[in-house]
Design a protein around this nucleic acid. Sequence first.
DNA 1: GGTGTCAATTGACACTGTGTAAAGTTTGAA
DNA 2: TTCAAACTTTACACAGTGTCAATTGACACC
Lengths: 179, 179
Amino acid sequence: MLEERGGRGVRMGDIAESAGISRQAVYLHFPSRTELLVAATRHLDDVLDVDARLAPSRTATSGARRLELFIECWGNYIPDIYGVAKALLLAQSNDEAAAAAWQDRMMAMRDGCRAAIEALHADGTLAGDWKPQTATDALWTMLLVPNWENLTIQCGWSTRQYVRWMKTMAKRAFVDDAG
Amino acid sequence: MLEERGGRGVRMGDIAESAGISRQAVYLHFPSRTELLVAATRHLDDVLDVDARLAPSRTATSGARRLELFIECWGNYIPDIYGVAKALLLAQSNDEAAAAAWQDRMMAMRDGCRAAIEALHADGTLAGDWKPQTATDALWTMLLVPNWENLTIQCGWSTRQYVRWMKTMAKRAFVDDAG
DNA sequence: GGTGTCAATTGACACTGTGTAAAGTTTGAA
DNA sequence: TTCAAACTTTACACAGTGTCAATTGACACC
């Protein structure tokens, strides 16, 4: 439902109805809407097997390749989780816990960014005057969901276009030309 | 208030109280919370004199310079409007009209992006295989508020650092090296 | 067959925040 | 003196989340 409706306007009652149980019964399984959303993201991670998807990136031979593969993985992952992600993002306005949950999730993604940047750093191919931490900040920000949202949903780019652009930008920004 | 509290948790009652009138009286001036927020952004635009700020960019001699000046202007503008912008952004979850208002505002910003890209295009210095429209999409996305938010509020970058990075990235992405 | 337990149901209700409605008060100007 | 505008108070509708209590049906175990 979240996917269909872009994460908007899905109420506890709707979820209950679509599950064929009463609204109250949902609360027997999840203490709050936010917790339900968090559980949904965890479930999605499980079903989509994030770890397996990230494996190629982790085993890449060079930092540059690792960066590329990470972006590809993440870029193809966003469309699959967008509905739930957006719902969590929207819930932030009312619910402090939702903000924390989203924050948490984004920090996990940041770890992937840091790993890629560290790999470049280890190779000695981290461009220019970047410090690993600042570069991580920058890569992390580039890959944030709202950017994907704007390019695809708003501008009509395909995920393929999105991934290609992000790769190009990231290489130009972070990978030393000499490397 | 919006600025102080990062656009969060400012209710109609709070606004009324801080204005020294009753909550109902606020509705004598603004039909809805969203309209109030929109009016606030318009007022801010007025007070901050956006047009004057943008003048240097508009009169730039080269496309590259125009791009640079536009980014500088926008980058220094975001901190000033962040509170109201964030409030409008958060209101989107409940209110369709807020989403439209925000959309509207972002489209206006997009015009600035397009103008800068067109200037590059006219100079013949628009890099690589960019088409003006796609380049506009990309620049527009880079400059979106959530990116500023993440880099400054989340990562602790100064606005100066933000502007510097955005300029560098935009030049590398959009300006032909030969130019 | 009786007992306990578990999942779920129904119905009612509290709470928050927005927005509406109506009747009364203050203030200032013609 | 009268009128209108700005504002006040009080009350209420509405949506959506979350809580609570009493009840039902199914199943397992002895």
